[in-house]
Amino acid sequence: LDKKAIESVAFGNASTDISLLKRYCSFKNESNNGTFIQVPDKYCSFLFAKVQWADWLIGLVLLIISIICLCLCLFLLVKILQSLLKGTVKSIIFKMVNANFPGMFKHLTPYLALLVGCILTILVQSSSIFTSTLTPLVGLGIITIERVYPFTLGSNIGTTITGIMAALTATSEKDLRNSLQIALCHTFFNIIGILIWFPIPFMRFPIPMAKNLGEIAAKYRWFAVLYIVCAFFLIPLIVFGL
């Protein structure tokens, strides 16, 4: 990416035809009527450096490629787990992951799962990786939805730590204050959501909702695509369009 172009966009000084991609990585000096000017010498070594496409088109192509790669990786992950986790191994893992504390401490088990989800997400620096790993395990029947629910909520807290760490790299006091405000907004937003939907068992209705949606998607495969399009594209467009 072209750092100068990004700065121009951030400060509102960019022209309408500016490109955020840095296509040339080296320049050479050429004489022009006694004055030296810099002209492009060598293309940068990224995929679309030599293709004269608009930024939005390159972004769209990369988005499609990334979605295909993601789906392929998840498909292969499920196949590998299906071949590895069978019989006795599956039973042992199921009992270990879904076990509860004994006696009166039973109700503390989900909170431990929430903490584990938070810590593991901090370690891998990605909630997407963590939840994408858990999803096929639920499909294989190794982890119950009731147990993966606190794991996912903890992951939502752990993923905000990356933003806080990035904010702490600010050099000036003003930049540090502004960046920390945004990072903490993300953190407290997720924490407040967890306080609403987790501590009171009655409020954990995302669990039965997930089960119902899963049953419908298993029966009607097209419903899963419809749900993704509506939840992640149409509804946000309608809300933000208003």
Rank of each mutant, 00 (worst) to 15 (best):
G34D: 03
L20G: 14
I58P: 08
L84N: 03
C69H: 04
I18L: 15
I67T: 10
L85N: 01
F27G: 02
M104S: 12
N100A: 09
I65T: 02
I80F: 14
L123V: 14
S31Q: 03
S26V: 02
G103E: 03
V78D: 15
I58C: 10
M104T: 11
F101N: 02
L21S: 08
S19K: 10
K28Y: 02
A49F: 06
C44Y: 08
V61E: 05
G87W: 06
K86F: 06
S83M: 12
I67N: 13
L114S: 05
L72N: 00
P102N: 04
K95R: 13
A49E: 09
L108M: 09
F46A: 03
T35G: 00
S91N: 12
W53C: 05
V78M: 09
C118E: 11
F46T: 05
H107M: 10
T109I: 07
V97F: 12
C71P: 00
E30A: 02
D41Y: 06
K28V: 04
C69K: 08
S45P: 00
I64E: 03
P40H: 05
L60V: 07
D41G: 05
K86C: 07
Y43K: 02
S91E: 15
L114P: 04
L57W: 07
C25F: 01
A54W: 09
K79N: 12
C69Q: 00
L120D: 07
K90A: 13
M96L: 15
G117L: 07
A49D: 09
I122H: 08
K95M: 09
D41E: 15
N33L: 13
L57S: 14
C71Q: 11
K42W: 03
T109A: 09
L77I: 03
I18T: 09
V51K: 12
K50A: 12
I68Y: 10
C69Y: 06
L85K: 01
G117D: 04
T109M: 13
E30L: 04
L112S: 07
Y24L: 04
G59L: 15
V39N: 07
F101W: 05
I68N: 01
F75M: 12
L123C: 13
I64K: 00
I37H: 10
L84D: 02
G87C: 10
V51T: 04
W53I: 05
N29K: 13
I93A: 10
L57F: 14
Y24M: 01
A54L: 02
